[in-house]
Design a protein around this nucleic acid. Structure first.
Length: 418
RNA sequence: GUGGCUGUAGCUCAGUUGGUUAGAGCGUCGGUUUGUGGUACCGGAUGUCGGGGGUUCAAAUCCCCUCAGCCACCCCA
């Protein structure tokens, strides 16, 4: 039989990597709960229109990366490619606009059919926050503050820089795009092939091109902020002033843009200093028209999402110290007694017990030490007659007996000394 | 989607200009007699050489296709 592997770009998660995932989720959940964000878990599968409408038909995600299929009832469905639109849909479906507080966070898998490489998978995990309500710079600031705190807590903030820009409101951005197109059309002969395509589809993206030819021209491009109306520039000023007040260091990057249609005003990204292509770890911004695009009211919102796998790449080991005790009998006829013994033990945080069920006495001891057990509990025939057990410390190589009804106290005592 | 590199035991790899039954280290399993491990010594097992096709008397080695992994582009978290 030919062996079957996992689907391309989708990996099994286990060992140290899984521990890091769990560690990150745990910290994130704790922090969000503290700031009164409510966890929400939306379905993995959504109607295709949710993303078609919100991300924009020309975006790569919609045009070629979504896993989409018709189910047996002929419904056109997709595996969700991102979280924001799904949470916005949930906001509408469940009439969250009635609620007093509208701050949510999520943790979950997203799916995009791209060519896998470092920091990019077809099934990957994100967590993110969304803050709905009236447009207010304080919401943007709160959401960034949460991100900054989180990155600090997990110890990678120093490896990152925060870049910030504003896309302005719809009107000023429209004017800017027109002028940008006009400018770039004159320079067509100097642009890369990709950028020529982008000029038609999504001219803003030319601004963050990595092509050296394009970079020359981008330097001379008109800047978005010179097209801001009063509302747009006041809003952005508020954000930058606020960040300074909060002591959050950032860099302005007037070429930072967004590939998705729903963004306006604030855009920000935390990037590593590495010169690799997947160096954005956390990205977000304001999306005032999203709810409306999906058929809801005029609620506005701001939020961000972070790639868990990308954070893990930058995380040092998170292995918690655990103590292992191996448990076994000296003869196979007592195996059920050993099972009974461990059945009644109370689980403890930093302890794992391991029942050894095969091999002779020597093999069991040998296995116990290979498993790095610090001690063994041995149920041995002679001692068991008086309901006593052997405690063998594998580090000091000392041995003692204790009686079965004292086992909890005995174990606690041993662990306290660790 | 485009381009480059890679693919040999569970892991890390060797395999000479195509030439007998494909190797090493680590790990695993067993042994060095009875209820005492870690070390040491001895021994065993494991591979359709990623998959398919072709060239050849002969292919892990050469050619084609395909799949997967990594990296860059594209895109994005």
């Amino acid at each position: 039989m030919q062996k079957i592997n996992s689907v391309k770009g989708m990996r099994d998660l286990f060992g140290e990597e899984l521990i890091k995932h769990q560690y990150l989720s745990q910290i994130f959940r704790k922090l969000c709960t503290f700031y009164n964000y409510e966890e929400i878990a939306t379905p993995l599968v959504e109607h295709i229109q949710i993303f078609n409408r919100s991300l924009g038909e020309t975006s790569d995600i919609v045009s070629k990366e979504m896993y989409n299929f018709k189910d047996q009832g002929d419904d056109h469905l997709v595996l969700r490619p991102e979280g924001t639109a799904a949470v916005a849909r949930a906001y509408i479906s469940n009439n969250f606009q009635q609620k007093l507080v509208n701050k949510y966070f999520y943790i979950g898998s997203m799916f995009r059919r791209e060519r896998p490489q470092s920091g990019r998978l077809r099934q990957f995990n994100q967590f993110g926050v969304e803050f709905f309500g009236n447009r207010n710079i304080l919401s943007d600031l709160e959401v960034i503050l949460l991100a900054d705190n989180f990155l600090n807590k997990i110890g990678i903030r120093k490896k990152l820089r925060l870049e910030i820009n504003s896309l302005g409101n719809k009107e000023s951005r429209g004017k800017y795009i027109e002028s940008l197109k006009e400018f770039l059309n004159k320079k067509k002969s100097h642009l890369s092939e990709e950028s020529l395509r982008r000029l038609e589809k999504n001219p803003l993206r030319i601004l963050d091109s990595k092509n050296s030819k394009d970079l020359e021209i981008v330097k001379e491009c008109p800047k978005i902020n010179s097209f801001f109306d009063k509302e747009s520039s006041d809003f952005f000023d508020g954000i930058t002033k606020g960040l300074k007040q909060l002591g959050i260091t950032f860099e302005l990057n007037s070429n930072l843009v967004r590939g998705l249609d729903y963004y306006n005003h604030t855009a920000f990204e935390y990037k590593t200093f590495e010169e690799k292509s997947q160096n954005t770890i956390l990205a977000g911004g304001r999306y005032d028209s999203l709810i409306n695009m999906l058929g809801g009211n005029n609620s506005t919102g701001v939020g961000w999402a972070a790639g868990i796998e990308r954070i893990v790449l930058n995380l040092v080991s998170k292995n918690k110290e655990k103590f292992t005790i191996s448990v076994f009998s000296n003869s196979p006829e007592f195996n059920f007694e050993v099972l009974n013994l461990i059945k009644n033990l109370k689980p403890k945080d930093n302890l794992q017990i391991n029942f050894l069920n095969s091999g002779n006495f020597k093999k069991k001891l040998s296995k116990a030490s290979k498993l790095k057990s610090f001690a063994c509990i041995i149920l041995a025939e002679n001692e068991w007659k008086e309901k006593k057990l052997i405690w063998k410390d594998l580090i000091s190589d000392s041995q003692e007996t204790f009686s079965l009804d004292m086992i909890e106290e005995f174990l606690n005592n041993k662990l306290d000394k660790k």
